[in-house]
Design a protein around this nucleic acid. Sequence first.
RNA 1: GGGCGGUUAGCUCAGUUGGUUAGAGCACCUCGUUUACACCGAGGGGGUCGGGGGUUCGAGUCCCUCACCGCCCACCA
Length: 893
Amino acid sequence: MSTTARSQLSPRYEAAAIEPAIYERWLAADAFTPSPEPPSGAKRFVITQPPPNVTGALHLGHALTAFVEDMLVRYHRMLGDDTLWLPGVDHASIAAQFVLDRILAEEGETRATLGRERYLQRMWQFMDETRDVIGQQHRRLGASLDWSRLRFTMDEGSARAVRAAFKRLWDAGLAYRGEALVNWCPRCRTTISDLENIKHEESGTLWTIRYHLAGPDGKPDPDNWISVATTRPETIFGDTAVAVHPEDERYAALVGREAILPFVGRRLPIIVDEHVEREFGTGAVKITPAHDFDDYEVGRRHGLPMISVLDEDARLTDEAGEFAGLDRYDARARIIDRLREMGDLEGEAPHQLVIGRCDRCGTVVEPRLSVQWFVKVKPLAERALSSVREGRTRIIPPHFEKVFAHWMENIHDWAVGRQLWWGHRIPAWYCPDGHITVSDAADGPDACADCGRPAAELTQETDIFDTWFSSGLWPFSTLGWPEETADLQRFYPTQVMETAYEILFFWVARMMMLGLFLTEVEPFETVYLHGIVRDPYGQKMSKTKGNVVDPLEMIEEIGADALRVALVSGNAPGVDQRLTAAKLTGGRNFTNKVWNAARFVLGAAPEPMAEPAGDETLAERWVRSRLAATIDRATRQLDALDLAGYAATIHEFAWSDYCDWYLEMAKVELRREDSSDAERARLWRTTTETFGELLRLLHPLLPFVTEAIWEPLGEVAPWAIRGEALLIRAAWPSASAADDAIERTVDELRDLIRAVRDQRTAAGVAAGAWLPLHVAPSGASERRALEGGARYLAALARVRPLDVTADPAGRPSSAGSTALGTFWLGSDAAADEAAGQRAAERRAELRRQVDRLRTLLGNDDFIGRAPAPVVDRERARLADLEAQLDALGDGAG
RNA sequence: GGGCGGUUAGCUCAGUUGGUUAGAGCACCUCGUUUACACCGAGGGGGUCGGGGGUUCGAGUCCCUCACCGCCCACCA
């Protein structure tokens, strides 16, 4: 078939048009879905990916995640592994409610006006609108996800897994309900976890307040008081003691007496506790157990009453007497005013303090005493920690293992309940007698597990689970757990868990804890953590700063492959990167380079096309050797999850070796007039074949570009694609042996060509001018190399005639030298003078090197203690440099 | 307060278990209409590897110390 017209590639790689079409071809071929039966003998490769939030749009972090995972998946798919990359989204209960509440507010509705049922209906409707967004965006990135297995953390499969998981925790005594102080967001009106309570350093005020001592009549003594320092005067109504340090002499006499709480007159014991810092404030501190985590502990130690004075909206309760109903900050101002009037405000000073704010809405979080569901994490954490310590789960980069350990050792019980509506309702039922029944049945228990009361008399817990509870089950819930499904057996445990280090604790730790407890096995072998993508100045990208780069806009501009190259190149795991315009341009330029190499290769078919024959040229043998070395190296790097290393390896091979040298040498061969049609056909075959191998190597990094080239390549050179119509399904190349001798020869020729070019440039010779070149080989093998490479030397150094058997005795003082021998250009006086100067510089450099090596090799310690190969290498290097120096006519001693 | 990183060319970053000439991309200088690519090609310049000390035949790499930058965790009201 005549394919010349079809194999034409457009002059430019039009990413916006080409990439979506390629993705459709992959989808049509069902290329992302594993075969129904696992290939026999194949290794498993399953990625656990963090399901993005359903409400979000894709940002650069997601793009990096997707690129890293897609690269690994494409590589392993090409290796023939049983590969699965399962897509999904997270229902993100608190984030989703935050977004929906905002939308409702615009419609004049609230959660309260709708009620639970209608609110959830509205939420599902909203989900239907947004659930596809992330998926569409992933398609544009080129993510080869198995869409047939798409999951959602609110689907029935997840619901079943959540119920089963909680039941097992409950049965094992690892889930409990109890009263404790938790973080409460008054705006989201829910409990949040420690991780969602973000600490900020802020400016506030430290007030000093007088608490009058109780006089003999029980009334406040106007002349005696104890002063306490506080940043939160509005919580005084919850005070149940005043504490001082046990060794604080100043207050020793007051210990055991009582102080009177202003406004309400409650009597507060003055107690001692180690927790008090004598140097801070007055050295006396009011104890408010229901509104401060420290005070809570003090309260427990001393058996103090715990009085809540803030309601769920952070307004003061009836406990606050005249201040009841006021917002916490309004109350604060009024209380301070009143204390000032009463003369009991002793001082106020600016103070830096750490305030926790809700990760979602930024509202100041309140410690709040309430009855909550908890998961006891200590035993779970210990198992996760030993997995990492004993190497059953490996974290990349390794230093995060220390961070992980530090966190796991200091972990508190996990408050899993949320007072929200959007999420999995906790499967616990209460009976009127106070019994608790936890059930994993879809429609709840038949009866109370303790007293047998019928289901009709039981009421289900209204709290839902923290989003991370269902996300934590992701690696196995998505494969059918708790059922022993075929997918679970085939794809679990997974191999690589990949995510940003930011959510190591949020998600990875919880997946490990839950996975180990529920499935008795580590949910993944390796945790690969990537860093944050920052702006060019190292700032975190955020909408408020206005420095956000939208990956989809970037893709429209330069293409998904270009963005992939930009994000992956030179990016070490766990390290933040700055995304600069230069990096993006570099990515675009590389895709363009590959595209244009393809245009050349495809267009270089010889006319007429003959049956290939003849011995391979130096160029062909060299490129095959370089290719073999590159395959070997790239494969090892991908196996080690060194993606940046892999990208650098193939970037260098493709650009420097293949394009800059091989294709240039191939041009020399193709344009020879003394070669036969058969030889030209063979060269073309080698070129297309190696180019096909290059495309395979590049595919994980440039999936779209390489796939776009693959089909036209196959049309003109079917041998290059070995019968596989789609590159995504082609086999990863296997490395043959590199040919060190050939590589050395070409290296030496390259050095000579460069040296000649250097002299030409230095002499200001017109670029197009042909100059005679004389080379006096330093030995027989060098002479053979020169003869073998004469064609390349002549064309690439632009020299003519070329004399490779020159008599060294006839060399001028301007002669240069390389490993192959001495060389000089036949040229005009100006060129001679410049060359002479170069030659002198070269001699000086050689002398310096030779001296250094002679000193080193004259050192008995070095000879005696360095390993033999190192010594031999240095000796060889010295001999080589001495030979070059001799050839230049300078013995140097 | 505790912990973890980082400091390598003008910029952004690599640098395997220590091996003696520390790399890349971008930027810079010179040259170039050679029919794949100017989103290109050729050549070139540029680093006492944050400071100091130590171990070693040999240190960007290991140890100690100091300085600066960043991040995470944390219960001084």
